[in-house]
Design a protein around this nucleic acid. Structure first.
Length: 650
DNA sequence: TTAGGGTTAG
């Protein structure tokens, strides 16, 4: 029994000779519930101690009880899990096996749950392996345990074995097996497995079960298969608030914020007796934030207050982030200030809000206040605060905070933290130091780290390092078009047009495409979107004419188009024409035409803001005397009087 | 005995 190697010898010897009723070989006949024995007061005592959470005393009492019942063991196991005590759990496990409960599938289920909760999947595996009569409960518990432990891949073989053994999957089995597809640490994508399970579900008539089908929607959502998720959702015979929320979350998480809001609207208007709850709100707020749809967001805020959902911490964290992403940092701060209770997520939300607005020093102040409030930082806290330092160019502060992860907080920096450091140093044009961090990392630098390095090379036009980083990235993420585009931009800036063409070919050969630019603007509570190549847009001619006129006026004032960002080796004039078609310029023009003076123009872009759009927007903010907020993938740019809040550092 | 959707970052 390797399982018990590290633990004290079982206590059986102490009580075996005190046992008044010698045990028959099989446990069940000896069970006090199945033989008529007077109810044991010790059993009762153990159970009471467990219910009150006095685990140590309960374990002690166990040594006095010769015939613990199944119920006693059940409570003991549960209490060990609650008390997070592996050693006690193992003691109980050992004792119940000695007592002949080793064939008890009910207790086996409980043991598997316990080991899973304690994070010891190998112990759970031992229990599972040692049991011959595996009921559906046992299989389900083990599937769930494997999934939680990130061993999703193991589930499929066992699922086949279970079917081969004639045990029929039930609605719970399917939810666990579907979850196993997404919760696998393995490199292989398990989408294909998920589709197989989908077929299995249909063959066995489970397409009527709301839980199973909702899990299926969620599985497709997590693989980014929005269409499949939609098919499943649309085909569901009955949907409840969870199904709707899952589909809304699917859109919100997969860059389809507009559809998320639409679906939410449909849910509110068309479906009776269905009330969105706090979970729904979180996804909808996310979608508003993604679109910078401030007016929609405010309506949701009012709704949250009416429904009394403002005491739900995740809702408030999403609300703070929504306001910040919509450019309204002050309101977000006010929401935070009014919270009666705050958790680390609330603080993280505020820190990252200040970070995305470029207020690095204030973000650090908030972080220090959080520590003074005795809130323990989470790994995400450090991502947020390092990101804030990066946006504000606070290199030394960032380095100090990074060191504090190990020195002051006894935590280990993750790949994400290293990626933040590479970004921080790289943006600040300290590429050598950034490269050294990558070299000295104690773990494998993943795509995020190399991606940060490549991004910095793009800003500072470092061809050699960009080639090194992209070589690794092309291996790690062969289908991420963004990496090819970044490298091409580095080459274009260096006028290495042959190389630009070579990278473009590489992209084409794999059937990949450059993600096209897209911008959104909210005007009078409606969201309008613009694409860079957008001949179908009804406003396009008007906008082009407007921009052409604007560009001429700006040129008189000293504007020079930043043609280096154009990835085509064409005449300057053509490059200027291409630049004028950028989606954010269309959105700015649309905003100027369709909103009244004094109104802030809020725009969102799906990519990083290009240098030319940045300088044009600065000009516009001055000449049209308008405040313009542009949120790109990285941060918020607040243009006013010809200046941007990022200080041209982004 | 067991169940489905969410929070903060990049």
């Amino acid at each position: 029994m390797w399982l018990f190697h590290h633990y004290p010898q079982p206590i059986r010897q102490q009580h075996s000779h005190t046992r008044r009723h010698p045990s028959p070989p099989h446990s069940h006949t000896r069970h006090p519930t199945s033989v008529t024995l007077p109810p044991s007061t010790t059993n009762h005592l153990i159970q009471t101690l467990c219910k009150k959470g006095h685990l140590k005393q309960a374990i002690k009492a166990l040594t006095q009880e010769p015939n613990p019942t199944q119920r006693t063991y059940e409570l003991l196991i549960h209490t060990c899990a609650l008390a997070n005590s592996l050693s006690d759990g193992v003691t109980v496990n050992k004792r119940l096996m000695d007592d002949g409960f080793d064939t008890d599938s009910f207790l086996a289920t409980k043991l598997i749950d316990m080991y899973s909760e304690l994070g010891f999947i190998e112990y759970a595996r031992k229990v599972f392996d040692g049991l011959s009569n595996r009921t559906i409960y046992v299989w389900n518990a083990f599937f769930q345990a494997l999934t939680l432990a990130g061993c999703g891949l193991d589930v499929f073989g066992l699922f086949c074995e279970m079917n081969a053994n004639g045990v029929k999957p039930d609605r719970f089995t399917y939810t666990y097996v579907l979850k196993a597809c997404v919760a696998s640490d393995s490199e292989v994508s398990l989408l294909a497995k998920g589709k197989e399970i989908h077929a299995h579900i249909l063959r066995h008539g489970f397409e009527v079960n709301v839980h199973v089908m909702t899990t299926l929607v969620d599985m497709y959502a997590r693989f980014g298969s929005v269409l499949e998720a939609g098919y499943v959702f649309d085909g569901m015979p009955a949907k409840n608030v969870v199904s709707w929320s899952a589909m809304i979350a699917c859109y919100a998480k997969n860059g389809r914020a507009y559809e998320a809001l639409q679906l939410f609207g449909e849910m509110m208007v068309e479906v009776d007796d269905l009330t969105p709850n706090s979970v729904t709100m979180v996804s909808v707020l996310q979608a508003c934030g993604a679109l910078a749809a401030l007016e929609q967001g405010k309506l949701l805020h009012a709704y949250i207050l009416r429904r009394g959902l403002d005491s739900v911490l995740p809702v408030i964290a999403s609300l703070i982030t929504m306001y910040a992403r919509c450019g309204n940092l002050e309101v977000g701060k006010r929401v935070f200030d009014q919270m009666r209770k705050r958790d680390v997520v609330s603080w993280n939300a505020l820190i990252s809000s200040y970070g995305m607005h470029g207020f690095g020093e204030q973000a650090i102040e908030i972080y220090n206040e959080m520590l003074r409030n005795k809130i323990k930082p989470s790994p995400i806290t450090f991502v947020s605060i390092l990101g804030a330092c990066s946006h504000a160019g606070l290199v030394d502060e960032g380095k100090r905070l990074f060191d504090s992860i190990t020195k002051e907080h006894n935590m280990r920096p993750t790949v994400e933290h290293y990626a933040c450091m590479v970004d921080l140093l790289g943006r600040a044009n300290r590429l050598d130091e950034a490269a050294k961090i990558v070299q000295d990392m104690r773990m494998e630098p993943g795509p995020k780290v190399w991606g940060s390095l490549l991004g910095s090379c793009r800003i500072h036009c470092n061809v050699e390092l960009a080639e090194r980083a992209s070589k690794r990235l092309f291996k790690l993420e062969p289908t991420n078009a963004g990496n090819y585009v970044l490298l091409a931009e580095v080459y274009a800036a260096a006028h290495l047009w042959d190389e630009v063409l070579r990278v473009k070919k590489l992209l084409q050969n794999q059937g990949l495409e450059k993600k096209s630019g897209c911008s959104w603007i909210e005007v009078k509570k409606k969201v309008y979107s613009f694409a860079s190549v957008d001949e179908f847009n009804p406003h396009i001619e008007q906008l082009h004419a407007f921009l052409l006129q604007l560009s001429m006026e700006m040129k008189e004032q000293g504007y020079r188009p930043e043609t280096k960002v154009v990835l085509y080796d064409v005449e300057e004039e053509e490059k200027e024409r291409i630049l004028l078609g950028h989606s954010e310029k269309l959105a700015v023009a649309f905003g100027l035409i369709n909103s009244s003076r004094g109104e802030t123009i809020r725009i969102t872009k799906n990519l990083r803001l290009c240098e030319d759009c940045h300088s044009v927007t600065k000009f516009v903010s001055k000449f049209a005397n308008r405040e313009i907020l542009v949120r790109d993938v990285n941060r918020i740019h607040h243009f006013k009087d010809g200046v941007c809040s990022c200080g041209d550092y982004w």
